[in-house]
């Protein structure tokens, strides 16, 4: 007998899925804001070769970029408590996302910073701009303008990657899906709908981030 697809049990729990999607977005927004902040700090240390921080950030970037997010998450959630650092599943999930995105955005933003043309710095100096002004208007903003599309993609990758946070019982979208699946035994239908929600979130997030970029990063003259 052919399998009968039955989506009703999934849609009966639509509220759980929506709540989960909301939590996934909240995780992503928190992770993105803090992660990009960390990335800016890291990029400055790397680009200006501030010893010993440039070395520390270099090692950090390599370690994070060459290990899976899931292992980073497990290390933080299961491993750190034996050093006395205990945290809940939300804190662990956010921390893992910040650390992960921080490493990638350090590299991305650094590429933007070192692409600052020398003449621009000289022009800023000849206009008697202070170091802080020069950095803000001449270095950082143009750097962020250049790399905004890459940062957007990385934030989306982190959002999709957050699906594995369900493994430490963070109650985000995949956790909700696992719950519904275990109640309804409709695994395929549940994950199919969940995948569609993730896809919609990814499309939405890209639109929003590009719009934000146009408005706040790229739009105004530097």
């Amino acid at each position: 007998m052919a399998y009968q697809f039955e989506f009703t049990p999934v849609f009966e729990h639509a509220d759980l899925l929506l709540k989960g999607a909301g939590f996934t977005l909240a995780l992503t927004v928190t992770g993105a804001v803090l992660g990009i902040g960390l990335g800016i700090v890291g990029a400055i240390c790397r680009a200006w070769q501030l010893k010993p921080f440039n070395w520390l950030f270099g090692a950090y970037v390599e370690v994070i970029r060459n290990t899976p997010f899931l292992v980073q998450l497990f290390f933080i959630f299961f491993g750190l408590p034996s050093l006395g650092v205990k945290m809940g599943e939300w804190e662990a999930a956010v921390l893992a996302m910040v650390i992960n995105l921080g490493a990638y955005s350090t590299e991305i933003i650094r590429a933007g910073i070192i692409a600052t043309p020398r003449g621009q710095l000289e022009a800023a100096a000849s206009l008697a701009m202070s170091r802080a002004e020069t950095f803000r208007h001449v270095v950082l903003r143009p750097a962020l303008q250049k790399v905004w599309p890459a940062l957007t993609s990385q934030v989306i990758i982190v959002m999709l990657g957050s699906a594995v946070c369900s493994q430490i019982a963070t109650e985000e979208l995949t956790f909700a899906a696992n719950f519904i699946q275990s109640r309804s035994f409709r695994a395929f239908e549940t994950y199919f709908v969940t995948t569609a929600i993730y896809f919609a979130l990814a499309v939405l997030l890209r639109q929003v981030l590009m719009a934000l970029g146009r408005r706040f990063v790229i739009g105004r003259p530097a």
């Binding site: 995949t174 395929f188 995948t195 896809f199």
Partner: peptide
């Protein structure tokens, strides 16, 4: 545009 985990679940189930 979708998580790898979901892709694996869908293939598996």
């Amino acid at each position: 545009g979708t998580p790898l985990l979901m892709q694996l679940f869908i293939v598996f189930f």
